[in-house]
Amino acid sequence: MIVLVFSASDKGGTGRSVTSCNMAYWLSMTGLKVAYLDFDFGSPTAGGTFEISRIDTGIGDGIGLHSYLLGDSGFPARVSVRSETDRVELSQSRHPSGRLVLFPGDHSGSEFTTLDEPMVRRCTALFATCEQEFDVTFVDLSAGRSIALALALSATRSAQLAETVSRWLIFHRWTRQHIVAGHSLVYDEHGVLGTGVEWGHDREQLRNSIRYVRTAVPELNDAMGLRPAQAAWLQRQHDTLNRAAIRNEMGSTVVLGRTPVEPMLQCREQVILDIDVSARIANPETVDAFRHLATRLMNRAVWERLE
């Protein structure tokens, strides 16, 4: 099964990119060939998350995704994460069959303001190439209702990608504001569904290709260090947020999974390895969450049609 995975969020700071990078890493560790396309054109920082310092804010020389989509280069640069990363443990952590390849954005790129047919054709060709070469392709989109979002929706309606499985992940933090924003990104007039219909998608098929990822969710079963009043208040808020999620059509039946609050990621967005857990720097629950998300992403049953 070949899969295109689009990572989207209405707000910045949702953990969209770092969670997607970690999911891509863990899928490569199962032996899959994984591509990661940095479509966050205004802030291409996937290189930094994979700890490749030479492209930590995008690649130079006009060979990134931004230049390719504009027609300024014949094909975008690709970087083997394990060959190029500065982190020894990441370079040595590999599956014999797995691959992880980053397509970085341009260092001097910016958000697109217009979308034209040549750009759609180049994007379609890129997705088709990735489909032929990789098992899973992550496309990390700019936050909000961006040209990157419209570009992805337009390209996936092409006949060239008619048989491709596309899945949409909507990332949001576990707060009322982010729940409302996540609903808005999907259901507002110019959201995922509205824009998708404009480009020829079937609304219900597209809706059934969407799942939500809740990030930075506090663990309520671990009240260590909390006063009783704080623990009780958090439980009430959690219950309120669950009701809000249901009202906003983001209840448990459409949730792919969640990630806990992780102190390590508060200071540095990176791939978390087993060695980080062994060193007691990262929490095991966080790695378990990334693995769980990656497993469910590839589980057909999770994506069965919703009634």
Results as ranks from 00 to 15, higher is better:
258 R>F: 10
274 D>W: 11
287 V>N: 03
264 M>D: 00
270 Q>N: 12
282 A>G: 10
265 L>Y: 01
271 V>L: 05
270 Q>L: 13
283 N>L: 14
263 P>E: 02
264 M>W: 07
291 R>S: 00
288 D>T: 15
280 R>M: 15
286 T>D: 02
278 S>L: 13
261 V>R: 02
267 C>A: 14
263 P>H: 07
283 N>Q: 15
280 R>Q: 15
286 T>S: 13
263 P>I: 06
282 A>R: 06
269 E>Q: 15
289 A>W: 05
267 C>I: 14
275 I>G: 07
267 C>G: 13
293 L>R: 02
295 T>S: 12
283 N>E: 14
272 I>D: 08
268 R>M: 11
273 L>T: 07
267 C>P: 07
273 L>N: 04
264 M>K: 08
274 D>H: 10
270 Q>V: 15
288 D>H: 14
286 T>V: 11
258 R>D: 09
260 P>H: 03
290 F>C: 06
274 D>V: 01
294 A>Y: 03
262 E>V: 08
261 V>N: 00
273 L>Y: 07
290 F>V: 04
262 E>T: 06
290 F>Q: 04
295 T>W: 10
278 S>M: 12
279 A>Y: 08
258 R>L: 11
287 V>H: 05
261 V>I: 15
267 C>L: 14
260 P>I: 03
288 D>V: 13
278 S>D: 11
261 V>P: 02
282 A>Y: 05
263 P>Q: 08
258 R>I: 05
272 I>N: 00
272 I>K: 02
280 R>N: 14
279 A>L: 15
261 V>Y: 04
278 S>W: 15
295 T>P: 04
281 I>L: 14
262 E>Q: 10
260 P>K: 01
263 P>F: 10
292 H>K: 12
269 E>P: 08
277 V>G: 01
294 A>R: 02
273 L>E: 06
280 R>L: 12
285 E>M: 09
262 E>I: 01
261 V>F: 04
267 C>D: 14
269 E>R: 15
288 D>I: 10
274 D>I: 02
262 E>F: 04
285 E>I: 09
278 S>C: 09
277 V>W: 01
283 N>G: 11
294 A>H: 00
292 H>L: 12
272 I>F: 08
277 V>P: 00
259 T>Y: 00
258 R>C: 09
260 P>Y: 05
285 E>Y: 02
287 V>R: 05
279 A>S: 14
274 D>M: 12
293 L>M: 00
267 C>W: 14
286 T>H: 04
271 V>T: 00
261 V>L: 11
284 P>I: 05
276 D>P: 03
267 C>V: 13
289 A>E: 04
